[in-house]
Design a protein around this nucleic acid. Structure first.
Lengths: 225, 225
DNA sequence: TTTAAATGATAGTAATACTATATCATAGAA
DNA sequence: TTCTATGATATAGTATTACTATCATTTAAA
């Protein structure tokens, strides 16, 4: 049996749903590749259009602008991560084991998931590490947030916060710790690879050390005292 | 006696030293104000030139482009923070007290420092919170890093890591914990104000709660077990 | 088969991110 | 006093970016 995964996206993220058409899927697929290759700053709809042999105007029918496309991509990613978290922690009783699974999922290389054909999750993971925070670090966060554009991120944070509370019902900062885990899983990887002296993993560049650091950080914070 | 603070900057950060001329100082001062007001994305040298009643070409003589200017501003900020850290922790014996001072310095509102006349440190602090990471989240981090453009950030991280080691000589992740403190001091403040459900401080919007969270996180990690 | 939706082709505009060059004021050295 | 280097002003021009608009054509659902 073949299963296909579809992540339901907020309709405000796009002008026309890219999942519904061939062109739409090509836009997402090649956006991920282009942003991965050249970075978000030098990414333009013109270049994307050339890549997929369509036109700039064609892409503007799907997304208002490239920033909205970035929000779409990150929202998709967080939705997908939440699916993975729920899937991988299913049937696990011990919340501490769940939390470890989550940390590992966030901080280690992603294996491309065949359930979504047009999206390369490994590239996407790398994009989110270096471009993800640009989705919300803007002057218009508040309005974007009102449109619920960051809901998948906030939902994931909520799921992780709940696991933290399962581990330690009296812990006072479950949400802040959850967002810290998410952000630091990515930032420490970025630093390790690009500004290694900001970490203790520069020599080996081993993602598993980031996992160890985060586990140490998290479990020392939430354990009973 | 009046003391004037000058932060020595890496010469590769600029084409002409803005500290040395009136126009240069105006560029820095009004950049901070404009970026604070409209965000880095919509900031252009043209608008800046209009603001200071000079010309675009004039500004290009000081900075290669607006991204270099952002790196300059952030580098200046980290240099200044390091000066504050050293100053405020001077003569304190207890490293735990030092570390608390550092956390407070990073996470709470900055009082404008009269020692630097043309720079408003409070605005600058707010800019760094929302724009600071854009300085290094680029495709050219590695080259920029080779030119030592991020040295002030890395030095500050080193200073904090040393304090952590004073507290707990056997702690395994002093640098990663230091960069986590720095980043989270800023991100949690940003989240608290803009995406409050990612934190536990949304209702009160009280910076001191961010301080408490970070202290809890840090001291549980480094205390002897 | 009709017809609406999706796409493609083309054109145009305002703003952005620069580069180049020529002039001018002034302050210190010869 | 003159020369020269430095900093500032003024103007002009280019390639690219970030869009918007229009119209023709293909495709796919009713």
């Amino acid at each position: 049996m073949e299963v296909q995964l579809q992540i339901k996206m907020n309709e405000k993220l796009f002008l026309r749903d890219p999942e519904q058409t061939e062109l739409g899927k090509k836009i997402i697929q090649h956006s991920v590749e282009l942003i991965h290759k050249n970075g978000f700053e030098s990414f333009t709809f013109k270049k994307l259009a050339e890549e997929i042999e369509s036109t700039e105007a064609g892409i503007y029918r799907y997304f208002e602008n490239k920033h909205r496309l970035l929000i779409y991509i990150t929202a998709w990613y967080w939705g997908w991560v939440q699916y993975c978290v729920v899937f991988k922690t299913n049937n696990i009783k011990d919340p501490a084991v769940k939390l470890k699974k989550v940390i590992q999922l966030l901080a280690t290389t992603v294996v491309d998931d065949d359930k979504t054909l047009h999206i390369n999750e490994d590239l996407l993971h790398q994009i989110i590490i270096s471009e993800g925070s640009k989705a919300y670090l803007t002057k218009h966060v508040t309005e974007d947030n009102k449109e619920q554009l960051f809901k998948p991120y906030k939902d994931l944070c909520g799921v992780i916060a709940d696991i933290i509370l399962e581990c330690s019902p009296k812990y006072k900062y479950p949400r802040s710790l959850a967002s810290t885990i998410i952000e630091m899983a990515h930032f420490q990887i970025f630093f390790m690879n690009n500004l290694p002296s900001l970490t203790d993993f520069g020599k080996t560049k081993d993602e598993l050390k980031v996992v160890s650091f985060l586990e140490d950080l998290v479990f020392n914070s939430i354990r009973k005292k």
